[in-house]
Design a protein around this nucleic acid. Structure first.
Lengths: 106, 106
DNA sequence: TTGACATATATCACATCTGACATAGATTCA
DNA sequence: TGAATCTATGTCAGATGTGATATATGTCAA
């Protein structure tokens, strides 16, 4: 599991800010981090473009403001599932999600 | 939550085979199902192309054969997280994942 | 300053997902 | 036929993600 390793790192005082803050990530691991970052940025952009607050959006998604903040921060405690679901709710199409996912980051 | 609704449907005797077997799905819900199906197909294709069994691949992924079977079946009990992780492990790039995600299905 | 609003961060009980395991079906080959 | 191999399906305890909540920080106008 990947999440387990992440937890280990976090327990050790690590924070995930951007993909570059980690070295020694396997290709899969860094790709995963990059995806998370790319999707979370797209989410924030879309929410801001829609002119709604995290609180409002949380209600639309059936989630909470705190989780939206974590979503947009690329916090590793949020799943890609929720990230993608959020993008769809904020108006992205499947294709949009794919584009966002592939978008180069940092 | 979406998973909750899914569970409700499953409890009611539903099975997800393909996206079309559901009607009355919200756009987000059906997009999500389509994504799952598209990714799972890509996964199976890649694994078969690599010429390895589910059991072998499970070991590479750090998972189990039964879960690989469920992954490839698009079983709603598996997360997009695991699905995407599996694709990366089987050799897909971030771009490949994006392409697979957007691929039209059935 | 203050107050109002937006966002960030921490915690927690509970829902969901997980790998492991058991076992059933499918297919192939002697 | 039957053994061997691969895949499908069900179950479960334990790991992980979840929304809710509280509270801190940030921003901006009065």
């Amino acid at each position: 599991m990947d999440a387990k390793k992440r937890k280990r790192l976090e327990a050790g005082g690590w924070k995930i800010g951007n993909a570059a803050s980690f070295i020694n990530l396997s290709p899969e691991e860094s790709a995963l981090v990059d995806m998370r970052v790319a999707l979370s940025r797209s989410l924030r952009e879309r929410r801001l473009a829609a002119g709604i607050t995290q609180t409002t959006f949380a209600r639309q998604l059936g989630s909470s403001q705190s989780r939206i903040a974590k979503l947009e921060a690329g916090d590793p405690s949020v799943s890609l599932d929720l990230l993608i679901r959020a993008l769809l709710v904020v108006g992205a199409s499947r294709k949009d999600v794919a584009t966002a996912l592939a978008r180069r980051v940092a």
